[in-house]
Design a protein around this nucleic acid. Structure first.
Lengths: 222, 222
DNA sequence: TCCAATAATCTCATTATAAGAGATTAAGGA
DNA sequence: TCCTTAATCTCTTATAATGAGATTATTGGA
Protein backbone atom coordinates (compact mmCIF):
# COMPACT_ATOMS: atom_id res chain seq x y z
CA UNK A 1 0.00 0.00 0.00
CA UNK A 2 2.83 2.36 0.94
CA UNK A 3 4.83 1.55 -2.19
CA UNK A 4 2.09 1.72 -4.81
CA UNK A 5 -0.47 3.94 -3.13
CA UNK A 6 -3.34 1.52 -3.71
CA UNK A 7 -5.88 0.64 -1.11
CA UNK A 8 -6.21 -2.64 0.72
CA UNK A 9 -9.10 -4.12 -1.34
CA UNK A 10 -7.37 -3.25 -4.61
CA UNK A 11 -4.12 -4.88 -3.63
CA UNK A 12 -6.05 -7.79 -2.26
CA UNK A 13 -7.58 -8.27 -5.70
CA UNK A 14 -4.25 -7.79 -7.48
CA UNK A 15 -2.52 -10.37 -5.35
CA UNK A 16 -5.43 -12.77 -5.61
CA UNK A 17 -5.44 -12.47 -9.37
CA UNK A 18 -1.67 -12.90 -9.63
CA UNK A 19 -1.84 -15.84 -7.26
CA UNK A 20 -4.72 -17.51 -9.12
CA UNK A 21 -2.84 -17.21 -12.39
CA UNK A 22 0.37 -18.53 -10.78
CA UNK A 23 2.55 -15.47 -11.29
CA UNK A 24 3.09 -15.09 -7.57
CA UNK A 25 2.74 -17.64 -4.84
CA UNK A 26 2.09 -17.20 -1.14
CA UNK A 27 4.89 -18.13 1.24
CA UNK A 28 5.02 -18.42 4.98
CA UNK A 29 4.13 -15.42 7.07
CA UNK A 30 1.76 -13.82 4.56
CA UNK A 31 4.53 -12.94 2.13
CA UNK A 32 4.62 -13.54 -1.60
CA UNK A 33 7.24 -14.78 -4.02
CA UNK A 34 7.34 -15.12 -7.80
CA UNK A 35 5.31 -18.16 -8.76
CA UNK A 36 5.37 -21.19 -11.02
CA UNK A 37 4.14 -19.35 -14.09
CA UNK A 38 7.35 -17.37 -14.20
CA UNK A 39 9.44 -20.53 -14.08
CA UNK A 40 7.33 -22.17 -16.75
CA UNK A 41 7.44 -19.16 -19.03
CA UNK A 42 11.21 -19.04 -18.85
CA UNK A 43 11.26 -22.72 -19.76
CA UNK A 44 9.08 -22.04 -22.79
CA UNK A 45 11.24 -19.10 -23.75
CA UNK A 46 14.37 -21.24 -23.50
CA UNK A 47 12.90 -24.08 -25.51
CA UNK A 48 11.58 -21.91 -28.29
CA UNK A 49 14.64 -19.74 -28.75
CA UNK A 50 16.35 -20.81 -31.99
CA UNK A 51 19.48 -18.94 -30.96
CA UNK A 52 19.92 -21.14 -27.89
CA UNK A 53 19.23 -24.30 -29.86
CA UNK A 54 21.84 -23.38 -32.44
CA UNK A 55 24.44 -22.11 -29.99
CA UNK A 56 24.33 -24.86 -27.35
CA UNK A 57 26.53 -27.36 -29.21
CA UNK A 58 29.13 -24.62 -29.68
CA UNK A 59 29.00 -23.71 -26.00
CA UNK A 60 29.47 -27.35 -25.10
CA UNK A 61 32.37 -27.79 -27.48
CA UNK A 62 34.18 -24.63 -26.37
CA UNK A 63 33.66 -25.18 -22.65
CA UNK A 64 34.91 -28.74 -23.02
CA UNK A 65 38.05 -27.52 -24.76
CA UNK A 66 39.10 -24.90 -22.17
CA UNK A 67 38.62 -24.39 -18.42
CA UNK A 68 36.16 -21.56 -18.90
CA UNK A 69 32.60 -20.35 -18.94
CA UNK A 70 30.96 -20.18 -22.39
CA UNK A 71 27.93 -17.96 -22.67
CA UNK A 72 25.41 -16.43 -25.00
CA UNK A 73 24.27 -12.92 -24.15
CA UNK A 74 21.30 -11.38 -25.91
CA UNK A 75 21.19 -7.68 -26.56
CA UNK A 76 17.87 -5.98 -25.98
CA UNK A 77 18.70 -2.50 -27.15
CA UNK A 78 19.17 -1.01 -23.72
CA UNK A 79 20.36 -3.97 -21.74
CA UNK A 80 22.11 -7.28 -22.12
CA UNK A 81 21.06 -10.54 -20.54
CA UNK A 82 22.81 -13.86 -20.36
CA UNK A 83 20.47 -16.42 -21.94
CA UNK A 84 22.64 -19.54 -21.90
CA UNK A 85 25.87 -20.52 -20.21
CA UNK A 86 27.99 -23.59 -19.59
CA UNK A 87 30.93 -23.64 -17.20
CA UNK A 88 33.71 -26.19 -17.28
CA UNK A 89 36.21 -24.60 -14.91
CA UNK A 90 36.12 -26.12 -11.45
CA UNK A 91 36.07 -22.65 -9.94
CA UNK A 92 34.74 -20.39 -12.71
CA UNK A 93 36.34 -16.97 -12.80
CA UNK A 94 32.87 -15.50 -12.59
CA UNK A 95 29.31 -16.73 -12.60
CA UNK A 96 26.99 -15.94 -15.50
CA UNK A 97 23.76 -17.83 -15.10
CA UNK A 98 20.81 -17.30 -17.42
CA UNK A 99 18.96 -14.11 -16.61
CA UNK A 100 21.87 -12.23 -15.17
CA UNK A 101 21.73 -8.68 -16.50
CA UNK A 102 24.91 -7.01 -17.70
CA UNK A 103 25.93 -3.41 -18.02
CA UNK A 104 26.50 -2.03 -21.52
CA UNK A 105 29.53 0.06 -20.61
CA UNK A 106 32.33 -2.43 -20.09
CA UNK A 107 33.51 -5.86 -21.06
CA UNK A 108 34.20 -7.79 -24.23
CA UNK A 109 30.56 -8.66 -24.77
CA UNK A 110 29.36 -5.07 -24.85
CA UNK A 111 32.18 -4.05 -27.14
CA UNK A 112 31.63 -6.92 -29.54
CA UNK A 113 28.07 -5.72 -30.01
CA UNK A 114 28.79 -2.01 -30.18
CA UNK A 115 31.48 -2.57 -32.78
CA UNK A 116 28.93 -3.96 -35.20
CA UNK A 117 26.27 -1.30 -34.79
CA UNK A 118 25.78 1.44 -37.38
CA UNK A 119 27.34 4.70 -36.28
CA UNK A 120 23.97 6.29 -35.67
CA UNK A 121 23.17 3.66 -33.05
CA UNK A 122 26.58 3.53 -31.39
CA UNK A 123 26.90 7.20 -30.65
CA UNK A 124 24.20 7.35 -27.97
CA UNK A 125 25.85 4.41 -26.24
CA UNK A 126 29.32 5.93 -26.51
CA UNK A 127 27.98 9.06 -24.89
CA UNK A 128 25.97 7.32 -22.20
CA UNK A 129 28.81 5.03 -21.15
CA UNK A 130 31.67 7.48 -21.70
CA UNK A 131 32.80 7.20 -18.08
CA UNK A 132 32.96 3.42 -18.12
CA UNK A 133 34.68 3.30 -21.50
CA UNK A 134 37.31 5.73 -20.30
CA UNK A 135 37.94 4.03 -16.99
CA UNK A 136 38.62 0.66 -18.63
CA UNK A 137 40.94 2.27 -21.16
CA UNK A 138 38.90 1.91 -24.33
CA UNK A 139 39.16 5.60 -25.06
CA UNK A 140 38.95 9.00 -23.42
CA UNK A 141 37.14 10.73 -26.28
CA UNK A 142 34.37 9.58 -28.61
CA UNK A 143 36.84 9.42 -31.48
CA UNK A 144 39.19 7.16 -29.55
CA UNK A 145 36.30 4.90 -28.63
CA UNK A 146 35.13 4.71 -32.23
CA UNK A 147 38.65 3.87 -33.36
CA UNK A 148 38.83 1.07 -30.78
CA UNK A 149 35.47 -0.26 -31.94
CA UNK A 150 36.68 -0.17 -35.53
CA UNK A 151 39.61 -2.38 -34.56
CA UNK A 152 37.22 -4.79 -32.86
CA UNK A 153 35.11 -4.84 -36.00
CA UNK A 154 38.09 -5.62 -38.14
CA UNK A 155 39.30 -8.37 -35.79
CA UNK A 156 35.82 -9.85 -35.46
CA UNK A 157 36.34 -10.34 -31.69
CA UNK A 158 36.64 -8.20 -28.59
CA UNK A 159 38.99 -9.09 -25.75
CA UNK A 160 38.80 -7.56 -22.29
CA UNK A 161 41.06 -8.07 -19.29
CA UNK A 162 39.35 -7.89 -15.93
CA UNK A 163 36.86 -5.22 -17.00
CA UNK A 164 33.80 -6.91 -15.53
CA UNK A 165 35.37 -9.32 -13.06
CA UNK A 166 38.84 -8.79 -11.67
CA UNK A 167 41.24 -11.45 -12.92
CA UNK A 168 38.92 -12.73 -15.65
CA UNK A 169 39.55 -12.43 -19.37
CA UNK A 170 36.55 -12.11 -21.71
CA UNK A 171 36.66 -12.99 -25.40
CA UNK A 172 33.48 -12.20 -27.32
CA UNK A 173 32.21 -12.16 -30.89
CA UNK A 174 28.85 -10.87 -32.08
CA UNK A 175 26.02 -12.95 -33.45
CA UNK A 176 24.47 -11.13 -36.39
CA UNK A 177 21.05 -11.31 -37.91
CA UNK A 178 20.77 -9.55 -41.25
CA UNK A 179 24.09 -7.89 -40.50
CA UNK A 180 22.78 -6.49 -37.26
CA UNK A 181 24.05 -7.67 -33.85
CA UNK A 182 21.45 -9.44 -31.73
CA UNK A 183 23.67 -11.31 -29.29
CA UNK A 184 27.23 -12.21 -28.40
CA UNK A 185 29.13 -15.43 -27.84
CA UNK A 186 31.66 -15.09 -25.04
CA UNK A 187 34.32 -17.18 -23.36
CA UNK A 188 35.52 -16.07 -19.95
CA UNK A 189 38.64 -17.62 -18.57
CA UNK A 190 40.70 -17.02 -15.45
CA UNK A 191 43.59 -14.66 -16.09
CA UNK A 192 46.16 -17.09 -14.71
CA UNK A 193 45.27 -19.65 -17.40
CA UNK A 194 45.51 -17.13 -20.20
CA UNK A 195 48.69 -16.36 -22.08
CA UNK A 196 48.77 -14.48 -25.38
CA UNK A 197 48.89 -17.56 -27.54
CA UNK A 198 45.90 -19.17 -25.83
CA UNK A 199 43.88 -16.00 -26.12
CA UNK A 200 44.62 -15.84 -29.83
CA UNK A 201 43.55 -19.41 -30.31
CA UNK A 202 40.33 -18.96 -28.37
CA UNK A 203 39.66 -15.70 -30.19
CA UNK A 204 39.64 -17.31 -33.59
CA UNK A 205 37.50 -20.17 -32.33
CA UNK A 206 35.00 -17.78 -30.80
CA UNK A 207 34.87 -15.68 -33.94
CA UNK A 208 34.31 -18.69 -36.12
CA UNK A 209 31.66 -20.20 -33.84
CA UNK A 210 29.81 -16.89 -33.71
CA UNK A 211 29.83 -16.72 -37.50
CA UNK A 212 28.48 -20.23 -37.76
CA UNK A 213 25.72 -19.45 -35.27
CA UNK A 214 24.89 -16.28 -37.19
CA UNK A 215 24.64 -18.19 -40.44
CA UNK A 216 22.45 -20.89 -38.92
CA UNK A 217 20.15 -18.44 -37.15
CA UNK A 218 19.81 -16.20 -40.17
CA UNK A 219 16.24 -16.03 -41.30
CA UNK A 220 15.24 -18.66 -38.78
CA UNK A 221 12.03 -16.94 -37.80
CA UNK A 222 11.05 -15.70 -41.22
CA UNK B 1 -7.45 -11.70 -33.42
CA UNK B 2 -8.85 -15.08 -34.31
CA UNK B 3 -7.66 -16.67 -31.09
CA UNK B 4 -8.73 -14.03 -28.59
CA UNK B 5 -11.51 -12.25 -30.45
CA UNK B 6 -10.02 -8.81 -29.89
CA UNK B 7 -9.81 -6.19 -32.58
CA UNK B 8 -6.68 -4.99 -34.30
CA UNK B 9 -6.20 -1.75 -32.33
CA UNK B 10 -6.67 -3.54 -29.02
CA UNK B 11 -4.13 -6.22 -29.81
CA UNK B 12 -1.83 -3.56 -31.17
CA UNK B 13 -1.96 -1.87 -27.78
CA UNK B 14 -1.56 -5.12 -25.89
CA UNK B 15 1.50 -6.11 -27.87
CA UNK B 16 2.96 -2.62 -27.65
CA UNK B 17 2.53 -2.58 -23.91
CA UNK B 18 3.99 -6.06 -23.49
CA UNK B 19 6.86 -5.12 -25.76
CA UNK B 20 7.55 -1.84 -23.99
CA UNK B 21 7.68 -3.62 -20.66
CA UNK B 22 9.90 -6.37 -22.07
CA UNK B 23 7.56 -9.31 -21.57
CA UNK B 24 7.52 -10.04 -25.27
CA UNK B 25 9.99 -9.09 -27.93
CA UNK B 26 9.55 -8.71 -31.66
CA UNK B 27 11.34 -11.21 -33.88
CA UNK B 28 11.82 -11.37 -37.61
CA UNK B 29 8.79 -11.43 -39.82
CA UNK B 30 6.48 -9.53 -37.47
CA UNK B 31 6.30 -12.36 -34.97
CA UNK B 32 6.74 -12.16 -31.22
CA UNK B 33 8.54 -14.25 -28.64
CA UNK B 34 8.73 -14.13 -24.86
CA UNK B 35 11.02 -11.30 -23.88
CA UNK B 36 13.85 -10.41 -21.52
CA UNK B 37 11.60 -9.65 -18.57
CA UNK B 38 10.58 -13.28 -18.39
CA UNK B 39 14.20 -14.40 -18.31
CA UNK B 40 15.07 -11.83 -15.68
CA UNK B 41 12.10 -12.70 -13.50
CA UNK B 42 13.04 -16.34 -13.52
CA UNK B 43 16.55 -15.33 -12.47
CA UNK B 44 15.15 -13.33 -9.57
CA UNK B 45 12.90 -16.20 -8.62
CA UNK B 46 15.82 -18.60 -8.67
CA UNK B 47 18.04 -16.33 -6.62
CA UNK B 48 15.47 -15.57 -3.97
CA UNK B 49 14.22 -19.09 -3.45
CA UNK B 50 15.60 -20.31 -0.11
CA UNK B 51 14.72 -23.88 -1.04
CA UNK B 52 17.06 -23.79 -4.02
CA UNK B 53 19.83 -22.19 -1.99
CA UNK B 54 19.56 -24.85 0.69
CA UNK B 55 19.14 -27.77 -1.67
CA UNK B 56 21.87 -27.01 -4.22
CA UNK B 57 24.80 -28.38 -2.18
CA UNK B 58 22.87 -31.59 -1.67
CA UNK B 59 22.11 -31.87 -5.39
CA UNK B 60 25.79 -31.35 -6.13
CA UNK B 61 26.89 -33.91 -3.60
CA UNK B 62 24.42 -36.57 -4.73
CA UNK B 63 24.96 -36.04 -8.44
CA UNK B 64 28.71 -36.26 -7.91
CA UNK B 65 28.33 -39.54 -6.05
CA UNK B 66 26.23 -41.36 -8.67
CA UNK B 67 25.78 -41.19 -12.45
CA UNK B 68 22.34 -39.60 -12.18
CA UNK B 69 20.21 -36.51 -12.35
CA UNK B 70 19.44 -34.86 -9.01
CA UNK B 71 16.45 -32.55 -8.95
CA UNK B 72 14.17 -30.47 -6.78
CA UNK B 73 10.55 -30.39 -7.80
CA UNK B 74 8.18 -27.89 -6.24
CA UNK B 75 4.57 -28.80 -5.72
CA UNK B 76 2.04 -26.10 -6.53
CA UNK B 77 -1.14 -27.84 -5.44
CA UNK B 78 -2.30 -28.82 -8.87
CA UNK B 79 0.97 -29.20 -10.70
CA UNK B 80 4.63 -29.95 -10.14
CA UNK B 81 7.52 -28.10 -11.66
CA UNK B 82 11.22 -28.86 -11.65
CA UNK B 83 12.96 -25.85 -10.08
CA UNK B 84 16.55 -27.06 -9.92
CA UNK B 85 18.46 -29.96 -11.43
CA UNK B 86 22.01 -31.17 -11.83
CA UNK B 87 23.00 -34.05 -14.08
CA UNK B 88 26.20 -36.02 -13.77
CA UNK B 89 25.49 -38.95 -16.06
CA UNK B 90 27.08 -38.55 -19.48
CA UNK B 91 23.79 -39.53 -21.11
CA UNK B 92 21.15 -38.77 -18.48
CA UNK B 93 18.29 -41.26 -18.45
CA UNK B 94 15.93 -38.34 -18.88
CA UNK B 95 16.13 -34.58 -18.99
CA UNK B 96 14.59 -32.48 -16.24
CA UNK B 97 15.53 -28.85 -16.71
CA UNK B 98 14.09 -26.08 -14.55
CA UNK B 99 10.56 -25.23 -15.56
CA UNK B 100 9.63 -28.59 -16.92
CA UNK B 101 6.12 -29.41 -15.73
CA UNK B 102 5.34 -32.86 -14.42
CA UNK B 103 2.14 -34.81 -14.17
CA UNK B 104 0.82 -35.62 -10.71
CA UNK B 105 -0.32 -39.15 -11.53
CA UNK B 106 2.87 -41.15 -11.81
CA UNK B 107 6.44 -41.32 -10.68
CA UNK B 108 8.34 -41.33 -7.42
CA UNK B 109 8.14 -37.55 -7.02
CA UNK B 110 4.36 -37.40 -7.13
CA UNK B 111 4.05 -40.30 -4.73
CA UNK B 112 6.56 -38.90 -2.27
CA UNK B 113 4.41 -35.79 -2.01
CA UNK B 114 1.03 -37.50 -1.94
CA UNK B 115 2.20 -39.83 0.81
CA UNK B 116 2.72 -36.92 3.17
CA UNK B 117 -0.54 -35.09 2.53
CA UNK B 118 -3.41 -35.30 5.01
CA UNK B 119 -6.07 -37.74 3.88
CA UNK B 120 -8.50 -34.98 3.05
CA UNK B 121 -6.08 -33.57 0.47
CA UNK B 122 -4.92 -36.88 -1.01
CA UNK B 123 -8.35 -38.22 -1.86
CA UNK B 124 -9.14 -35.75 -4.67
CA UNK B 125 -5.76 -36.60 -6.22
CA UNK B 126 -6.27 -40.34 -5.83
CA UNK B 127 -9.59 -39.97 -7.61
CA UNK B 128 -8.35 -37.68 -10.33
CA UNK B 129 -5.32 -39.79 -11.18
CA UNK B 130 -6.92 -43.19 -10.57
CA UNK B 131 -6.17 -44.33 -14.11
CA UNK B 132 -2.49 -43.43 -13.95
CA UNK B 133 -2.07 -44.92 -10.50
CA UNK B 134 -3.62 -48.17 -11.64
CA UNK B 135 -1.65 -48.41 -14.85
CA UNK B 136 1.71 -48.09 -13.06
CA UNK B 137 0.68 -50.66 -10.49
CA UNK B 138 0.32 -48.49 -7.40
CA UNK B 139 -3.18 -49.72 -6.78
CA UNK B 140 -6.43 -50.52 -8.55
CA UNK B 141 -8.72 -49.17 -5.83
CA UNK B 142 -8.49 -46.09 -3.60
CA UNK B 143 -7.79 -48.34 -0.62
CA UNK B 144 -4.90 -50.02 -2.36
CA UNK B 145 -3.45 -46.66 -3.34
CA UNK B 146 -3.76 -45.35 0.21
CA UNK B 147 -2.05 -48.47 1.53
CA UNK B 148 0.81 -47.96 -0.95
CA UNK B 149 1.11 -44.32 0.11
CA UNK B 150 1.20 -45.39 3.74
CA UNK B 151 4.16 -47.63 2.98
CA UNK B 152 5.91 -44.74 1.27
CA UNK B 153 5.23 -42.56 4.28
CA UNK B 154 6.71 -45.15 6.59
CA UNK B 155 9.79 -45.62 4.39
CA UNK B 156 10.25 -41.89 3.91
CA UNK B 157 11.04 -42.40 0.22
CA UNK B 158 9.21 -43.39 -2.93
CA UNK B 159 10.84 -45.51 -5.63
CA UNK B 160 9.47 -45.87 -9.15
CA UNK B 161 10.72 -48.01 -12.00
CA UNK B 162 10.23 -46.53 -15.45
CA UNK B 163 6.94 -44.85 -14.60
CA UNK B 164 7.77 -41.50 -16.15
CA UNK B 165 10.62 -42.44 -18.47
CA UNK B 166 11.15 -45.96 -19.70
CA UNK B 167 14.31 -47.47 -18.26
CA UNK B 168 14.77 -44.80 -15.58
CA UNK B 169 14.48 -45.35 -11.85
CA UNK B 170 13.24 -42.48 -9.68
CA UNK B 171 13.96 -42.20 -5.95
CA UNK B 172 12.24 -39.29 -4.22
CA UNK B 173 11.70 -37.95 -0.72
CA UNK B 174 9.47 -35.06 0.27
CA UNK B 175 10.63 -31.71 1.57
CA UNK B 176 8.34 -30.63 4.36
CA UNK B 177 7.50 -27.23 5.73
CA UNK B 178 5.59 -27.32 8.99
CA UNK B 179 4.95 -31.01 8.36
CA UNK B 180 3.39 -30.25 5.00
CA UNK B 181 5.02 -31.27 1.70
CA UNK B 182 6.08 -28.36 -0.50
CA UNK B 183 8.60 -30.08 -2.77
CA UNK B 184 10.48 -33.26 -3.44
CA UNK B 185 14.12 -34.22 -3.81
CA UNK B 186 14.61 -36.85 -6.49
CA UNK B 187 17.43 -38.89 -7.97
CA UNK B 188 16.85 -40.46 -11.36
CA UNK B 189 19.26 -43.08 -12.53
CA UNK B 190 19.40 -45.32 -15.56
CA UNK B 191 17.89 -48.76 -14.87
CA UNK B 192 20.99 -50.59 -16.04
CA UNK B 193 23.08 -48.92 -13.32
CA UNK B 194 20.62 -49.73 -10.59
CA UNK B 195 20.67 -52.92 -8.58
CA UNK B 196 18.72 -53.42 -5.35
CA UNK B 197 21.61 -52.59 -3.08
CA UNK B 198 22.42 -49.34 -4.87
CA UNK B 199 18.81 -48.26 -4.80
CA UNK B 200 18.70 -48.90 -1.06
CA UNK B 201 21.81 -46.84 -0.50
CA UNK B 202 20.57 -43.96 -2.63
CA UNK B 203 17.18 -44.16 -0.95
CA UNK B 204 18.56 -43.56 2.49
CA UNK B 205 20.78 -40.76 1.23
CA UNK B 206 17.87 -39.08 -0.49
CA UNK B 207 15.66 -39.43 2.56
CA UNK B 208 18.31 -37.96 4.80
CA UNK B 209 19.12 -35.09 2.46
CA UNK B 210 15.44 -34.23 2.13
CA UNK B 211 15.12 -34.18 5.91
CA UNK B 212 18.12 -31.89 6.23
CA UNK B 213 16.72 -29.55 3.58
CA UNK B 214 13.36 -29.57 5.35
CA UNK B 215 14.98 -28.68 8.65
CA UNK B 216 17.05 -25.88 7.11
CA UNK B 217 14.15 -24.40 5.14
CA UNK B 218 11.78 -24.60 8.09
CA UNK B 219 10.57 -21.17 9.00
CA UNK B 220 12.93 -19.58 6.52
CA UNK B 221 10.46 -17.00 5.36
CA UNK B 222 8.89 -16.25 8.69
C1' DT C 1 11.26 6.58 -59.00
C1' DC C 2 6.62 6.59 -58.35
C1' DC C 3 2.25 4.48 -57.34
C1' DA C 4 -0.88 1.23 -55.32
C1' DA C 5 -1.91 -1.98 -51.83
C1' DT C 6 -1.29 -3.31 -47.34
C1' DA C 7 0.06 -2.93 -42.76
C1' DA C 8 0.81 -0.14 -38.73
C1' DT C 9 -0.57 3.49 -35.73
C1' DC C 10 -3.61 7.12 -33.91
C1' DT C 11 -8.15 9.58 -32.24
C1' DC C 12 -12.22 9.72 -29.87
C1' DA C 13 -16.92 8.38 -28.25
C1' DT C 14 -18.80 4.56 -25.84
C1' DT C 15 -18.90 1.06 -22.55
C1' DA C 16 -17.07 -2.11 -19.51
C1' DT C 17 -14.33 -2.68 -15.60
C1' DA C 18 -11.32 -1.52 -11.87
C1' DA C 19 -11.00 1.35 -7.59
C1' DG C 20 -12.18 2.48 -2.94
C1' DA C 21 -15.50 3.15 1.04
C1' DG C 22 -17.50 0.59 4.02
C1' DA C 23 -19.60 -3.77 5.71
C1' DT C 24 -18.86 -8.56 6.83
C1' DT C 25 -16.60 -12.62 7.96
C1' DA C 26 -12.60 -15.28 9.61
C1' DA C 27 -8.45 -15.83 12.45
C1' DG C 28 -5.47 -15.28 16.34
C1' DG C 29 -4.48 -13.96 21.37
C1' DA C 30 -5.31 -13.01 26.10
C1' DT D 1 -14.96 -16.91 25.70
C1' DC D 2 -14.40 -12.42 24.19
C1' DC D 3 -11.74 -8.99 21.92
C1' DT D 4 -8.57 -7.34 18.49
C1' DT D 5 -6.75 -7.66 14.04
C1' DA D 6 -6.55 -9.35 9.54
C1' DA D 7 -8.85 -11.12 5.47
C1' DT D 8 -12.59 -11.04 2.18
C1' DC D 9 -16.90 -9.33 0.09
C1' DT D 10 -20.49 -5.78 -1.87
C1' DC D 11 -21.77 -1.96 -4.31
C1' DT D 12 -21.36 2.68 -6.34
C1' DT D 13 -18.44 5.87 -8.73
C1' DA D 14 -14.91 7.12 -11.58
C1' DT D 15 -11.49 5.61 -14.62
C1' DA D 16 -9.53 3.37 -18.25
C1' DA D 17 -10.01 -0.07 -21.98
C1' DT D 18 -12.45 -1.06 -26.30
C1' DG D 19 -13.44 -0.77 -31.27
C1' DA D 20 -15.01 2.03 -35.37
C1' DG D 21 -12.97 4.57 -38.27
C1' DA D 22 -9.36 7.87 -39.88
C1' DT D 23 -4.56 8.59 -40.71
C1' DT D 24 0.08 7.61 -41.48
C1' DA D 25 3.94 4.55 -42.67
C1' DT D 26 5.81 0.37 -45.42
C1' DT D 27 6.29 -2.65 -48.81
C1' DG D 28 6.27 -4.62 -53.41
C1' DG D 29 5.73 -3.93 -58.21
C1' DA D 30 5.77 -1.50 -62.62
Amino acid sequence: MKELGYTRPTLYRYLKSLKDSGFVMPTRGGRFALGPRVVEMDYLSRRSDPLIATATPHLERLSAAYPCTALIVRWYGDKMLCVASIASAVAPASSYPRGRPMAMGRGAIARSIMAFLPKQRVMPLVTRYADDLRSVGVGATPDEVLAALKRVRRAGVAVAFGEVTAGAVGIAAPILDAGYPIASLCITIAGQHANGELIDRISSEVREAAQRISAATEGDSL
